[in-house]
């Protein structure tokens, strides 16, 4: 008798996740499961609840209902959960007066890395911005700031990576560096959740795909079950766009 292989424990898991802002429901029963080395790409129109979902998983917002866990820690999970998370959001989360190195080193120190300066330089190097390490962030272009922001989010090699439109503002070199960094994190066993409006970008890296509308998943498939050629049509149908 052969033992039945058990699937790897999910790094990110939600069951019936609900988040309300006063009487407005932003997340309305989201179920998801992302294992080590997997990437869930979430598409959806503005206001679908994508960013709220990431902020709940990052520990910035508490769930109003249902359950959620990251890296085996139930949310709200405090310090233990946040230690495993790297977040890239619409905002750079950088201090304009500090240099690129100082910004990333600051994040490294808050994560308790043994060699914060070396870790910061390594992260900046991976994103191709080590040459700008001593430049104040306020004088960097939007694209370079985005790369520094990504270095800040990845400096502690998180097990859970949450990305909200990470390719925005990046040129081809920056986008390639980000893709390489994401592939590196995936192959290292990190679980990724990528929110984007760009179907091609999402499908290129995803192992699972979801479409969100009005706070819930209206489509949730494995990436290999999706035909990229017809996905745009499926997406429009899922979010209720005619034509």
């Amino acid at each position: 008798m052969h033992p039945v292989p058990t699937p790897p424990l999910a790094t990110i898991e939600t069951r019936g996740l609900v988040r309300r802002f006063d009487r407005q429901v932003a997340l309305s029963g989201v179920d998801l499961s992302v294992g080590p080395g997997e990437c869930l790409a979430i598409f959806g129109p503005n206001g679908a609840g994508k960013t709220t979902l990431l902020r709940v998983l990052a520990g910035l917002l508490d769930p109003s209902g249902g359950t959620a866990s990251v890296a085996g820690v139930a949310l709200p999970g405090g310090v233990a959960a946040r230690a495993q998370v790297g977040l890239i959001s619409h905002h750079s989360m950088l201090y304009p007066a500090l240099t690129a190195r100082e910004n990333v080193e600051f994040a490294a120190r808050l994560h308790g890395l043994a060699s914060p300066r070396a870790s910061a330089e390594s992260a900046l190097d991976r994103l191709g911005v080590l040459g700008h390490a001593n430049t104040p962030v306020r004088v960097l272009s939007r694209g370079l700031q985005q790369r520094v922001s990504i270095a800040r989010a990845f400096v502690h090699t998180p097990r859970v990576v949450l990305l909200d439109e990470p390719y925005t503002g990046l040129d081809a070199t920056g986008a390639a560096a980000l893709s390489a960094a994401l592939e590196g994190l995936k192959s290292g066993g990190a679980a990724l959740v990528l929110v984007t409006h760009h179907l091609d970008e999402g499908l290129a890296i995803a192992t699972h795909v979801a479409v969100m509308r009005a706070g819930r998943f209206v489509l949730h498939e494995r990436r290999d079950a999706i035909d990229p050629a017809s996905f745009a049509t499926e997406y429009r149908a899922a979010v209720g766009v005619v034509g």
Partner: peptide, 17 residues
Amino acid sequence: AELADRAIDGLLIAPIR
């Protein structure tokens, strides 16, 4: 000073109390 570019979020997702 933390509101510009939502740097406060960087503090709040850090694994610190």
